[in-house]
């Protein structure tokens, strides 16, 4: 009994949850929107785009790490999340190689060049989407539904036309693969909340401040039809529940997260009401990502015994 035992610093027990479990749960949370999107557009390009874009994200992470002689981290599922999120943000008719290009950009430029998981200051999927928007504006903004190309409901709304909010809830409308069905997105989001992966702080502060903004400046007052259309359209739900809540690119404290949510709400409202395009969620989130260091600085918590105990 006199052999030496393993020593390490306390604590000697650990919670079961691991980063890879969390990422895997995010993937599962995205599945309802993914499946709905592929079914909804009935366009074989949609599922090819989803599969190829996701695979490209994982593969480019693997190859990059291999070439740079870094430890291979693809089994933490974070590249799957990035690839899938990017795919859900693409129009169903986009040529698959553009999706691949987006994934490589997201993983290599936005994530790995900044030091890998946890070091990037912009959401890689969103940054890649914006990159593609700039490179391929035409393909990225052409939305087809039932074989007919046309504007998204939010563009209609901006043009002052009537929209069907029921369709927007269900998702049988034009848009990117994963953003159209509020119901599918909410099923996934509920799952993540129940599993303790995300909480309401960011989505609630985002959505509430956005609604307040459009009620005040939208020119339609409290018109429920108008508010619902804004909430359901333009990828706001996908953004608020799955991209704004990305751990790496959001503040670490609760207070910071509230302020971050408010920033996104106000920016989204600003872009939608006064900007050139009908959308605005992606840019609002990316700009808020960049504001995170500042937000964290002004929301530094007070420690216990110095006012922070309450």
């Amino acid at each position: 009994m006199n052999e030496k035992y393993r020593v390490s610093s306390s604590p000697h027990i650990r919670d079961k949850i691991k980063s890879s479990n969390i990422m895997l749960m995010v993937v599962i949370g995205l599945l309802p929107a993914t499946v709905f999107g592929i079914w909804n557009f009935r366009h074989e390009n949609a599922w090819i785009l989803v599969v190829v874009t996701t695979a490209a994200a994982v593969l480019s992470e693997y190859i990059y790490e291999k070439l740079m002689h870094k430890p291979i981290t693809i089994n933490d599922f974070s590249a799957v999340v990035t690839g899938l999120l990017l795919a859900l943000n693409l129009p169903p008719t986009l040529p698959w190689w553009m999706g691949v290009l987006g994934s490589v950009f997201a993983i290599v430029v936005v994530k790995q060049l900044f030091g890998g998981l946890g070091q990037n200051f912009m959401n890689p999927a969103l940054a890649a989407r914006c990159f593609l928007l700039i490179c391929f504006t035409g393909q990225m903004t052409s939305f087809v539904y039932d074989g007919v190309t046309g504007p998204t409901p939010l563009a209609d709304l901006k043009a002052g036309e009537a929209v069907n909010t029921m369709d927007m809830l269900i998702g049988n409308i034009r848009g990117t693969i994963g953003e159209t069905s509020v119901i599918a997105i909410m099923i996934g989001a509920m799952f993540l909340i129940l599993m303790g992966v995300i909480d309401l702080t960011i989505p609630a502060s985002y959505l509430i401040s956005f609604v307040v903004f459009i009620v005040i400046f939208g020119g339609h007052g409290l018109d429920p039809q108008y508010i619902t259309a804004h909430l359901c359209g333009g990828g706001l739900m996908l953004g608020a529940w799955f991209m704004a809540t990305d751990y790496v690119t959001s503040p670490i404290t609760t207070k910071g997260r509230i302020l971050y949510g408010v920033c996104m709400g106000l920016l989204t409202g600003l872009f939608r009401l006064f900007g050139g395009s009908a959308e605005g969620v992606s840019y609002a989130i990316i700009i808020s990502n960049l504001l995170v260091p500042l937000i964290e600085k002004i929301t530094l918590p007070k420690p216990f015994g110095k006012g922070g105990e309450r």
């Binding site: 980063s19 969390i22 981290t73 933490d76 890998g116 998981l117 946890g118 751990y247 959001s250």
Partner: peptide, 8 residues
Amino acid sequence: ETACINCG
């Protein structure tokens, strides 16, 4: 140990 994911 793996990289911090900033989960809070």
